[in-house]
Design a protein around this nucleic acid. Sequence first.
DNA 1: TCGGCTATGTAGCAAGCGCTACATGCTAGA
DNA 2: TCTAGCATGTAGCGCTTGCTACATAGCCGA
Lengths: 162, 162
Amino acid sequence: MPADTHRAQLLPRLAEHMLRHGLPGASLRPLAKAAGTSDRMLIYHFGTKAGLTAAVLEHIAAGLEARLPRSDGRRLPFEAVFDELSEAFRDPALAPYHALWVELVAAAIRDPETYRPIAGRIADRFHAWIAARLDGGPGEAFRLLALLDGYALLRLAGRPET
Amino acid sequence: MPADTHRAQLLPRLAEHMLRHGLPGASLRPLAKAAGTSDRMLIYHFGTKAGLTAAVLEHIAAGLEARLPRSDGRRLPFEAVFDELSEAFRDPALAPYHALWVELVAAAIRDPETYRPIAGRIADRFHAWIAARLDGGPGEAFRLLALLDGYALLRLAGRPET
DNA sequence: TCGGCTATGTAGCAAGCGCTACATGCTAGA
DNA sequence: TCTAGCATGTAGCGCTTGCTACATAGCCGA
């Protein structure tokens, strides 16, 4: 059995654990336990903790995007898209994703080499996702993304919008 | 010499270290070294790591607010305040504060007991600061705060606004 | 002078971290 | 059938974490 297959089999369970326990809870031994293997084997398959983290986060981001509704081609004005998305992002089922996103950006501050490329790719993904359904330029899409991120951040800080 | 005086003397150096090295770098031994004392004495003065962290972060937040310009009583519309503040917040000298803020919110996710009250108080502080110079209600001030936080977050994720 | 309180140094504990050394079972190709 | 290499278990290393036990020096009031 090739190594890629092993990784692909591990990823869903690693992702589930990481979503539930966050980046700080994603140390090798608990991850291994959750995936039914050993820390020894995680390093064997992914080379390094950083490699593993990158793979799992990429997997999670792809999963989140697949869970969001497809664009129907219509482009709506700023406030309409904002209302729709801020409503959607209040879904508690998405809370673990927001938490992980903030933890990822926090990690990118002190270890940019490892985490910044991942964070950047994820930001781009959702920027494009917004731009595709917003009647406006990329700057406006960026602003909408920032606004949604800001509300999510403040919610995690214990200040939900009122 | 009373204990409060000792704490007050330690705080500036602890704050400087925490600003430079962030929340993850703020473990007892490095902090103690930076403040010219020992981990033993930090616990002695602050009781607990959580107590120390709360005190230092409060000190830092007060310092940041003191550094921002005072309100002259005039109230400006949303875009005017936004432009002024997003300009001010791009100052590289403030980058450590943004980084620490995101790290604080990230910490509040997994340890709300310790960090959420601190994060909430800081959010309130700047919400009030914005509300005092914005021509609009608290909801608009909140939206502006979210927008600024969002831009800061994306900047830390390696995506500065364009 | 003595007794108690504040302050501080030294040493260490138990847990967790990423990662590695070493041995070994298993299986597929020559 | 032999052998090379993939896969995996066991054990442990060196380090950092928050925190504590214990001893003790210095000072201040009775």
